[in-house]
Computed example of a mutant assay.
Amino acid sequence: MTAAVEASERAIVLIRANGDIAHHAEGCDGQTLAAAERALGLKFPPSCRRLIEEFGTWDVPPKEFLGVYRTPARGDTLLGSVAQTLEARTAVRLPRHLLVVMLDDVWSFVVLDTSQTDEDGECPVFAWNPGVPEGGLMDG
C-alpha cells in the first residue's frame, strides 16, 4: 500500500470515529467511479479513489470534499467532482487535465493536476483561480 493510500485509510478511520462532526454518504461503487472517469476523461488517483469508494462524498466542517455521488432528485447525474469539473471547464475554462476536488472560498477551486502523476498514480494538489494569469495554478 502506498503512503498516499495509507493516508486515505487513516482519514477514513478519523472520519468514522468523529461522526459527531464529520459527515459522509454511503460510498461509491466501481461502476459509478468508472462512469465518472469516462465522463471526465480523467482517472482518479488511488488515494482519492479509495476515499470516494468509502464515502462517495464527505465533509469535515468547514471543508466539504466533493467526491462522486448521485441523488434521487438528480437521477443518473454524477454530482460532486464530476459536475463541478465539467461546469468549470465550460464556465471558467478549467484546463481538461485538472480535477476539481473541493471548492474554496478564497482561491475558487482545489484541484488535482492529473497531468503530473507520479509512479503510484498520485497527483499534486493545487489551488486554481480562473482570474490568475498564466493558467491560474497556485501552490496550496
Rank of each mutant, 00 (worst) to 15 (best):
A17P: 06
R10V: 06
D139E: 15
V100Y: 09
R50Y: 04
E26V: 04
L14E: 13
D139G: 15
R70V: 02
S8R: 10
S108R: 14
G67T: 04
N129I: 01
A36F: 10
T77E: 15
C28S: 00
V132R: 13
S108I: 09
Q116V: 01
G30Q: 12
G75Q: 14
F44H: 10
D76G: 09
R50H: 02
S8D: 09
L86D: 05
G131D: 15
I12N: 08
V101A: 03
S81E: 01
R74Q: 14
E87F: 07
R96L: 02
L79T: 00
A127G: 14
A35C: 12
L40E: 08
G121M: 03
E87G: 10
P46F: 06
P130N: 09
D139T: 14
P61H: 13
R50S: 04
T71D: 02
K43L: 07
A34S: 14
T117A: 11
A73I: 05
R96M: 06
H97W: 00
A35L: 11
M102F: 03
D139P: 13
A127S: 13
L51T: 04
H24F: 00
V111L: 08
M1N: 03
S8N: 10
R89C: 02
E53A: 04
D59Y: 10
A7K: 15
C28G: 07
T90D: 14
Y69D: 04
A83S: 15
S47T: 03
D105R: 13
L14I: 07
A22F: 02
T57Q: 14
H24R: 11
F126Y: 15
V100K: 08
L137T: 04
V13H: 04
P130T: 04
L99A: 03
I12R: 02
D20V: 09
S8A: 15
T32S: 05
V101P: 08
Y69R: 03
V5N: 09
D20S: 11
C48L: 13
P130G: 06
V100D: 05
L112W: 11
R70A: 02
A127W: 13
V82Q: 07
F109W: 04
E37G: 10
S47H: 06
F44P: 11
V101M: 05
L51Q: 00
A83K: 12
G27S: 06
F65R: 11
A17D: 13
P61I: 01
G75A: 12
A17E: 12
V5R: 14
N18C: 08
V82S: 02
A17K: 11
G19W: 01
D118Q: 02
G135M: 02
F126H: 15
P61D: 12
G80F: 01
A17W: 02
S115W: 09
S8L: 05
G121T: 09
G136H: 07
E87Q: 12
P130K: 08
G41H: 04
T32W: 09
V132C: 05
G19C: 07
E53D: 05
F55I: 03
H23Q: 13
L78I: 00
D139H: 14
I15V: 10
A25G: 15
G27V: 02
F109S: 00
